[in-house]
Structures are given as structure tokens and as C-alpha cells.
Simulated assay, not measured.
Amino acid sequence: MRAPLGNFTDVRTAPEALDVLVEPVARAIRHWAGPVPAEEVYWVDTDPRWADTAAFVERYGRELLENSANCLVVTGRRGEARSHAACVVLSHTRVDINGVVRKQLNARKASFAPMDFATGETGMEYGGVTPVGLPVGWSLLIDAAVADLPYVLVGSGRRRGKLLLPGKAFAQLPGAVVVEGLGIEVPGA
């Protein structure tokens, strides 16, 4: 099987890869619903030794540079109230945490969640957090640029392996809101 992007040697549809996914992600794939079928979501094997962006695209394909996304966990605070969200932005951008995220969460202050909180609450590995299988009740903010792409590479819940999803599939995930301007271009990137 060939992936829609990249040069990967081990490619499976997500339903065929349940044995290599962390439980929250596998559960989300088993209960997948929406207009994009689960068979259009792929798991690809990637070696964590090639996680650095330059090495990754050299090994797996240059087109991945413009078609990869990061999923980052944030916490919003207003007084004693706390809210949590995951933000998905293209990997060559950064999350507008003090503008767009703060407003979306109706928070006075927003910050990136500590690693132990993000991994503990999601059941995923640091460096592999994915929007597929997030905790119930969390907001999921998707940059519109991600949703507009034919396919996007994102974490799989583990450091080894990635998911390839049609951009429009991100909008069908539980709690998803597509937001313009969530990802800000990084000068010089």
C-alpha cells in the first residue's frame, strides 16, 4: 500500500493499525464517524531517530514540509476556572496562543500545558500527541489552513508512527472548531 504523501515503507489504513496505536487513538478509530471514512486515514511507520524536521523530510519526502501539522495542548484560565484544548497548526507555523486561542477559550490567560499534564490526560506520548482520541469535553482548535489540505501528516499518539488524514477529516473530530489565523507564520522559517 502507498501513502497519499511521503515515502513510507510500512503503510496501513488506520483500522488495520489498531495494534500499534495507543488506546485512546485506537478507540477513536474503532468508533470513527463522519463523512470521511476511517479507511481514508492512514498510519505510517516513522523512526523517532528522524524526528528532526530537516532529517524527517529528507528521509520521508520533501512534500511533507508543507503538509505536516503539530498538535499542541493548551490550558486556558479565567479566575479559578480551567479549560483545556488541543490546537492543530501547520508545522511551519506557531500557535497564536495569546490572541486566537485565548479568545476561543474565553480565557484571561492561556499557556501551553506542561508535558506531564498533556501526556497524562491524553494517554499519548510526548512528541506524538494527535487530535484523534482526545479526552471527552476538550476543545479542538484546527487552523483553517490544515483543514484546506488534501492530506496532512500529524502525530499518532506515539513517537513512532504518524497519521495521515484528509484535511477535511480534522473538522469531523469531536469538539473540533476550524479557526482562521490559529497558526501564525514564523519569520525566517
Rank of each mutant, 00 (worst) to 15 (best):
R2H: 14
R2S: 14
A3W: 02
P4L: 07
P4E: 08
P4A: 09
L5N: 04
L5I: 04
G6N: 10
G6H: 06
G6P: 08
N7D: 15
F8A: 10
R12L: 13
T13G: 06
A14L: 04
E16I: 06
A17Q: 00
L18Q: 01
D19I: 13
L21Y: 00
E23S: 13
A26P: 07
I29M: 06
R30G: 12
W32Y: 10
P37R: 10
P37Q: 12
A38V: 04
A38G: 01
E39R: 12
E39F: 06
E40W: 00
V44D: 01
V44G: 03
T46Q: 12
T46M: 13
D47H: 12
R49M: 14
A51V: 15
D52Y: 11
Y60L: 07
Y60Q: 04
G61W: 05
R62N: 15
L64H: 11
E66T: 15
E66K: 14
S68C: 08
A69F: 09
L72T: 13
V73Y: 02
V74I: 02
V74T: 01
T75Y: 04
T75E: 12
R77I: 11
R78D: 14
R78Y: 12
G79S: 11
A81Y: 12
H84Y: 15
A86C: 07
A86M: 03
C87Q: 06
H92L: 15
T93Q: 09
V95L: 03
D96I: 03
D96A: 06
I97S: 07
N98P: 13
G99T: 09
V101Y: 03
R102E: 05
R102K: 15
R102W: 03
R102H: 07
R102N: 06
R102F: 04
N106Q: 15
N106G: 15
N106R: 15
N106F: 14
A107E: 01
S111R: 13
F112N: 08
P114L: 11
P114D: 14
M115C: 13
G120A: 05
G120V: 02
E121T: 12
E121S: 15
E121H: 14
T122I: 11
M124L: 10
E125Y: 07
E125I: 07
G127P: 05
G128I: 00
V129H: 05
T130M: 09
P131F: 02
P131Q: 01
G133P: 04
P135H: 10
P135M: 10
P135S: 10
V136H: 14
V136Q: 14
G137F: 11
S139L: 10
S139V: 07
L140D: 01
L140M: 09
L140E: 03
L141M: 05
I142E: 04
I142H: 03
D143Q: 05
A147T: 08
Y151N: 12
L153M: 08
L153H: 00
V154C: 00
V154A: 03
G157Y: 01
R158V: 04
K162M: 04
K162V: 02
L163G: 04
L165F: 01
P166N: 09
G167I: 03
G167T: 02
K168E: 14
A169K: 05
A169W: 02
F170P: 03
A171Q: 08
A171F: 06
A171L: 10
Q172K: 07
P174M: 08
G175D: 09
G175A: 10
V177D: 12
V178F: 05
G181D: 13
G181N: 14
G183A: 06
I184T: 15
G188E: 09
